[in-house]
Design a protein around this nucleic acid. Sequence first.
DNA 1: GCAGTTCTGAAAATTTCTCTTCATTCTGCG
DNA 2: CGCAGAATGAAGAGAAATTTTCAGAACTGC
Lengths: 295, 295
Amino acid sequence: MPTTARTVSDAIRTRYDDLTRAERQLADRILENYPVSGLGSITAIAENAGVSTPTVARMVQKLGFKGYPEFQSRLHHELEETISNPIAKHDRWALNAPGTHILNRFADAITANLRETLSDLDTKTFEDAAALLGDRDRSIYFVGGRITCALAEYFFTHMQVIRPKTTLISTNSSSWPQHVLNMNRGDVLVIFDIRRYEQEMATLAEVAKSSGIVIILMTDVWGSPVAQHARHIFRVRIEAPSAWDSSVVTLFVVEALIEAVQSCAWDKTRQRMNSLEELFERSRLFRRHNHQKLE
Amino acid sequence: MPTTARTVSDAIRTRYDDLTRAERQLADRILENYPVSGLGSITAIAENAGVSTPTVARMVQKLGFKGYPEFQSRLHHELEETISNPIAKHDRWALNAPGTHILNRFADAITANLRETLSDLDTKTFEDAAALLGDRDRSIYFVGGRITCALAEYFFTHMQVIRPKTTLISTNSSSWPQHVLNMNRGDVLVIFDIRRYEQEMATLAEVAKSSGIVIILMTDVWGSPVAQHARHIFRVRIEAPSAWDSSVVTLFVVEALIEAVQSCAWDKTRQRMNSLEELFERSRLFRRHNHQKLE
DNA sequence: GCAGTTCTGAAAATTTCTCTTCATTCTGCG
DNA sequence: CGCAGAATGAAGAGAAATTTTCAGAACTGC
């Protein structure tokens, strides 16, 4: 056992750079369901990772173990420590932190939020919203509040790659009138409005709706005033053991929507992404100049 | 496998009366440290209980298993269920959608990412990073790439409320030199660099480090080139059933850090937040003007 | 492209594990 | 005490796992 690493996972990570392709594939698989993954025989672990047994044997030796049996016995000991420690039972996510550590409390809260949000979420709302966002005849606009503008931006950045006609509206409401002016009947406005609802956001929604704009709203369970103007509403749980609300589940919904839209019309998207790739490549060349100056 | 018993321990207990002296001694030993005791080979378990290997072989057959391997594999499965998080076992999150619906697949992937990230995360890294970010003597700078700049912005927006001397650096690298110029020894640079690592980011890190700037890096498990310059590294799992990587867990870490920093020096933070509240109130009044115009 | 190197898995060699046989030991009872 | 019957473990046969070898594949640098 290497003296530098305390656990097997440490050993794997510290030497990850030295591993070969097949070995990394194996290492990833082991870490994926750690430490249970190492329970079975060398054959089982190899098959599970889609590599040959010699690869496993070689890697564990590379990691500093005498052989697979020693590797496995280490794993057994770690497992034993995790299991026999009563706190370790279920409620510990970060293995080397107490159950009350902020990381563990946060993890509990977020999974609860995710579970509750999803069990409340109407699949039809999701499908319909995805279909709207995927409709290339409609322009899409994104707007968020002080905190949520980062989410709007994240959503926008991805959608911009996937399809044309996407616009990010600044959080600063003074720019809103001209945006509304540009919108056409049937266009889609994605609004993020979460606790500390901003009154102007409701006004924006009202005005937009009366111009025939379709509104998709991301909000919390208490419901923003925008709700009455929105066609599709995502009510997300945002409670966290923190002075702040959590945006993790909101981001989850955003990412799921991105994937839904993307897979909807993969062919169209693909070509667009390739073209963009090239452009990014070129702009990277541009930027290399700047970085010369930076040095 | 006996149909009556759900678990191995059940099987042992229901047939305990039929066991012989040596078998009971063995059974007791197995139950004593269940289910970890059955991790090793039949030889190990026999020695541990002070009986011979045939005794073990006979007993497991008596209990209804075909042989020791079957017995052991049952034990492994039980262990696996105990270890892995019960919430993650839900095969359906969104109740009215099939298990293969994108929402459910995403939820599975994200909880797996969360679990793996947290079990790999060194608590000390977390504490140390939080302490750095909470140190009001140091200026904090945030920078992200094309996708991750939204995360940097989210982090920045919160930290800005919590403490002074926070700066968001534009993704556009042409602005970087002047920022580096402004930084002082001991200042903190939070870098988001995830897959599709950007070379200039590594250059920025290198330059910053040589000026005595402390770097905190949020990256994926493959490791960005920035890693060699960073003092604290958060390796986050980002795999999702999508053409895109998931930033959900990264955002989780960010929020946990925000809360850790905030609770660190709550008194100082509180006063600052109150002052800010007032300012926001006033600016809201400003904005009401705009919205009058909007109508 | 090509030579040299590294990586990889099939297969054989080796070790270890599991199970069965069988002789020995133990237990209960007349 | 001695015997029948069950229980136990030593030893070996057989099975499975682990390691090593080696030849082909993949990659790298020129």
